[in-house]
Computed example of a mutant assay.
Amino acid sequence: MGAVDAFTNAFSLVLKNKRLYLLVLLMSFMMAPLGAYLIPGEVNYEYNQTSIQKGNVIIEEYGTPIGGTEMEVLMDLLKGLAVYSLIALIVGAIFEYGVTKGIFMHLKGEEYSLGGLLIEGLKHFPGVILVNFVYGIIMLVFIGVVTIPIVLGVVLAPAGIVLVLIGLLMMLVVLAFTVGLSSLAIPFYVEGGSIGAAFEAFGLAFRNVRSTVGFGALLGVGTIAIMMVASPIAFVTQIAIPENIAPYVSAFLQAPFDALLYVFIWTAGVAFYRELQRMEELKKVDEELLELGIEV
Rank of each mutant, 00 (worst) to 15 (best):
F188Q: 08
A185N: 06
L289T: 03
G63W: 12
T223W: 13
A251N: 05
K123Y: 11
K79H: 09
A93L: 10
G98L: 01
F235M: 14
A259C: 10
D286G: 09
L152H: 05
A10M: 08
I294L: 14
I166K: 02
A157V: 07
E243L: 06
K79A: 14
M139G: 11
V296N: 12
A32V: 05
L26H: 00
F125G: 01
F142Y: 13
V263D: 03
G160A: 07
I233F: 01
E191T: 03
I186H: 01
L169P: 05
M171K: 07
I150L: 04
R210N: 13
V263K: 00
D76H: 11
S12D: 15
L118V: 07
T223F: 15
V24Y: 03
I138N: 02
I224H: 06
I119R: 10
L152T: 08
G55M: 08
A82E: 03
T212S: 11
M139Y: 12
L261I: 09
H106G: 08
A198T: 02
G127L: 07
F188E: 09
A259I: 06
V221L: 15
I245C: 10
E72M: 11
V154F: 15
Y97V: 06
G203S: 09
R274F: 05
A3L: 09
N44M: 14
F7N: 01
Y97H: 06
L290F: 11
G109H: 06
F257S: 03
G67V: 05
D258Y: 14
V145T: 13
T50V: 14
A185K: 00
V154C: 07
V151M: 15
K16Q: 15
A225F: 15
L38P: 10
M279K: 13
V174W: 09
K283P: 02
L292C: 05
Y112L: 02
I226Y: 05
R278S: 15
F264V: 08
G167P: 06
G220K: 04
E60R: 10
S51F: 14
F177R: 05
A205C: 10
